[in-house]
Design a binder for these strands. Structure first.
Lengths: 192, 192
DNA sequence: ACCTTCAAAGAACATATATTCTAGAAAAGT
DNA sequence: ACTTTTCTAGAATATATGTTCTTTGAAGGT
C-alpha cells in the first residue's frame, strides 16, 4: 500500500498565512511558500492546483480559523462586554501583522471579484453582528438610550478596518487598546 | 539643438496612480505603465531608474498633490466644520478606488522600511491635525466639554483608514457619507 | 536644406517565477 | 525480503517581467 502524505494541511495553511501577510499575494513567490511550509512542489500542485487557488483556500482557512472565532465574541450576546471582548481579541490578533483579509482587499480587490465578494460578506456580517450586540446592550440598558444603533455599528465596522491598517505600522498595540476604550466608553449609559 | 522631452511628468504621475491603485505594486507590470502613461521605456528608466524608485516618486506626488490638500481642510481652524470638510473631501477622493498610500502600507509595509516610514509620518500628521481641530472645536464650544481629545483624534485617524479599505468594496459612497455623519454627529455639543 | 541631437518605439536580454516533470526513496502490505 | 505505491526533492520548462539596447525619425539651430 502507498505511503501516506506527511504534511498536515492545517499547519501548512497557518504557515502560509504568515508568508502572505509579510509579502502580499504577488510579492509572495512559490519558492518561499515551498520553503516555509512543510511540503513540496508536487504536493502543492496536486493539492491546490495553483497559487491563486491556494490563496483562496488560505483565506478561507484564515476566516474560519481566526476571524470567525474573533467575531464570535459578538455572538455571545452580552451586549457591550461582548464588543469589548471582540476588540481585545482583534487587536491581539492583528498586532504587528495586520489582517490577511484586509490586505487582500486592498491589494487585489480591484482585479479579483471573488476577493471583493469575500470582503463584502465579511464586512456585512461584522456590521450585522455589531447591530445585534448593540441592540442587546440597549435591552440590558448598557447603552445611552438615544444611541443610533445602525450608525454606531457602521462606525465600529470602519474602526475595525482602521485597526488592521494601523497594526502594520504600530509597534506596540497599547495605543490601539487605549483608543478602543475611548471609543467604547462613551457608548456606555451613565445610569445603568 | 536637440529635441525636447514630450512628456509631462505630472500627467504621467497622475496616470501611474491609477495603475498602481488598480493592481497594487507587484501586480502592476511595466508594460502597463508604459502603455498607460504617455512615455516610453527609455524615458522611464532615464527619468526614474527603476520601478521601485518610480513608486516612491508616484507616492510622493500622490501625497503632495492629493492627500496634503485633503488634510489641509484640517488646518483651516474652523473646528468641527473643518473635520467635516476633511471627511467629505476624503470620501470623494477614495470612492471606488481606495487610497494609494494605505494600499502600499498593507501590501509593502512589512518589507519596505521606507513605505512604513512614509505611512507613519502621514498618520502622525493626520492625528496631530485632528487634535488641533478638536481643540479649536472645544474652544468654540462645538464639542462635548468632557471629550477626550487625544483618544477622539486616534479614533478619527482609524476611521480614515477604515474608509480607505471600504472604498475599494463600496460601489457608491452614500454609505460612507452616512458613516461620516454618524461618526461626527455624536461629537457635537448639545448646547452650543 | 542640412546637420546634429536626442526622443519614440519596440526589439532584445537576462532574470524571476509559476508550473510540470523526473528520479530516487520511503512506507505499507504480502 | 520484495513489490507497489506515491511521496520527496529538486531539476527542467515555459512564460512573465524588469531593464537595456538599437533603430528610426523628428525637432531645432545654422
Amino acid at each position: 500500500m502507498p505511503r501516506k502524505a506527511q504534511y498536515n494541511i492545517n499547519a501548512i495553511l497557518d504557515q502560509a498565512i504568515d508568508v502572505f501577510l509579510e509579502h502580499g499575494y504577488h510579492g509572495t513567490i512559490m519558492d518561499e511558500i515551498i520553503a516555509r511550509t512543510e511540503f513540496n512542489r508536487r504536493g502543492f500542485y496536486l493539492e491546490f492546483g495553483s497559487k491563486q487557488h491556494f490563496l483562496y483556500v488560505v483565506l478561507e482557512h484564515y476566516h474560519q480559523q481566526y476571524l470567525k472565532k474573533i467575531v464570535g465574541h459578538l455572538e455571545q450576546n452580552h451586549g457591550l462586554p461582548s464588543i469589548q471582548d471582540f476588540f481585545k481579541a482583534y487587536v491581539m490578533h492583528v498586532k504587528g501583522k495586520g489582517c490577511l483579509l484586509i490586505n487582500c482587499i486592498t491589494e487585489l480587490g480591484f482585479d479579483d471579484a471573488k476577493i471583493r465578494e469575500i470582503g463584502r460578506h465579511y464586512l456585512d456580517r461584522l456590521q450585522i453582528d455589531f447591530i445585534g450586540c448593540l441592540e442587546k446592550a440597549q435591552n440590558l440598558q448598557q447603552l445611552h438610550p438615544n444611541t443610533n444603533i445602525e450608525s454606531t455599528a457602521l462606525q465600529l465596522t470602519s474602526y475595525v478596518q482602521g485597526f488592521a491598517v494601523n497594526a502594520v505600522l504600530a509597534g506596540d498595540t497599547d495605543e490601539l487598546q487605549l483608543a478602543t476604550q475611548a471609543l467604547l466608553g462613551p457608548l456606555a449609559s451613565r445610569t445603568p
